[in-house]
Design a binder for these strands. Structure first.
Lengths: 220, 220
DNA sequence: TGTACATCAGTGAACGCGCGTTCACTGATGTAC
DNA sequence: TGTACATCAGTGAACGCGCGTTCACTGATGTAC
């Protein structure tokens, strides 16, 4: 990062124009600074500019302020998460395998280098309104996709699920809460946590089915 | 707060000594500053001192730094919460009533003036290690008490519950996550949220029972 | 009761720091002719 | 191809601010004699 750049690094090969800082460079710099004790909202504008190797005032060419950068970061994180979970749910597996497989995928993404998931896990409770709303929007996308899967899953088995929207919300919030906890634990405990979270999710799904079966014992 | 103090206010009636600032005064000042957009960890030492009506450096007579104040605040909040939930669970009620009654109590406490619960809901994901550990310790106390109740409840009905410790953890984390969400919503939606949370908790308990019943269909 | 003294909670002033934001600028780029 | 010019991404210096922390102090309190 601080090594002198070669021509190939500092020049855009198409135009010969000197490369300029991009929004992506700033987002990457912010992600690099995020760690177990640093949330996006605790980063200063000057810190991010320093990490990106630009003057503090150059920051304003890309974002109005740190809040705008944070919202952009949440957007990227949300899209990334949905892509990954979308891939996971297309795997064909037994029902127990679906739950465990998805939880494992989630946990792997949590430990990934890009730290994108950290943004969604940490920033939900602090920061400005725009900030929290952005995180909430991503969680709602997630809930909606999960709800669709749950309904499809139940239909494929010829059963009905009690309030799938609520089941989906409970699973989403619980998984994210447990994920936030996991971030502070050493990765050696990931297996244990995957077990715990999978069992919790299974309990919720089983409970919703049992309630549905009791309410409408014969048909619908 | 800024009115001139009468003698009765500014003098300790027992000794005639001028009242001095106490740790409690500083904790109260910090709680007054906490709101939907302010977490304890975003408060500055000078802000708290200002709110308490003392010089910034007088703060050091009571706490080493803001982190120490925050941990003290978490301790107070945790003790308060356990007392309230302890009272709620001593109420005799139907099983559905126990869940809903406890969730309602939790929600009432969330909206209470003292804002103590806010501390536990907001600060779990940010702040120093000492900070997060303090919040986690309170949640674990909570989990443990809930686990005891769940086992007792199952025994009273002659049934068994699957992994009560895990059930208790799932319920605790889910309720706190939903509570953190509720803080940002208008109180008009509290009823709706109590319904949702109660149903979620019931799903988890029902799921755990169903699994236990399937695993050990006859005895044990 | 009166006097001298030790204690110590609270103070006012000052420090150096990193912050967000502004300003006028520079100098490479791409374009018009 | 060469020249003059407009554009605009990035800069260096400076600003005022609130912060955490320090220092030597003050003045009321409680105690020893």
């Amino acid at each position: 990062m601080t090594q002198p750049l070669s021509d190939a690094d500092s020049l855009d090969l198409n135009t010969g124009r000197k490369t300029s800082i991009s929004r992506e460079d700033l987002l990457a710099a912010a992600l690099r600074l995020i760690g177990p004790h640093r949330s996006v909202s605790s980063l200063s504008l000057r810190e991010v500019a320093r990490e990106a190797g630009i003057a503090p005032n150059s920051f304003y060419r890309q974002f109005r302020d740190m809040d705008e950068l944070a919202v952009a970061l949440i957007d990227v994180a949300g899209r990334s998460l949905r892509k990954i979970i979308g891939a996971a749910r297309h795997r064909v597996a037994t029902q127990r395998g679906i739950v465990r497989g998805s939880v494992e995928t989630f946990m792997e993404q949590l430990r990934a280098d890009d730290k994108l998931l950290h943004v969604l896990l940490r920033e939900g409770t602090v920061g400005s309104d725009a900030f929290k709303q952005a995180v909430d929007r991503e969680l709602m996308f997630f809930e909606e996709e999960l709800r669709t899967d749950l309904v499809r899953l139940a239909a494929a088995e010829g059963t009905v699920m009690h309030e799938p929207a609520l089941v989906s919300k409970a699973i989403t919030r619980l998984v994210f809460a447990m994920g936030a906890m996991a971030m502070d634990l050493p990765p050696e405990r990931d297996r244990e946590l995957v077990d715990q979270i999978s069992t919790m999710v299974t309990m919720i799904i089983t409970g919703a089915r049992t309630i549905a079966a009791k309410q409408k014992p014969a048909a619908d």
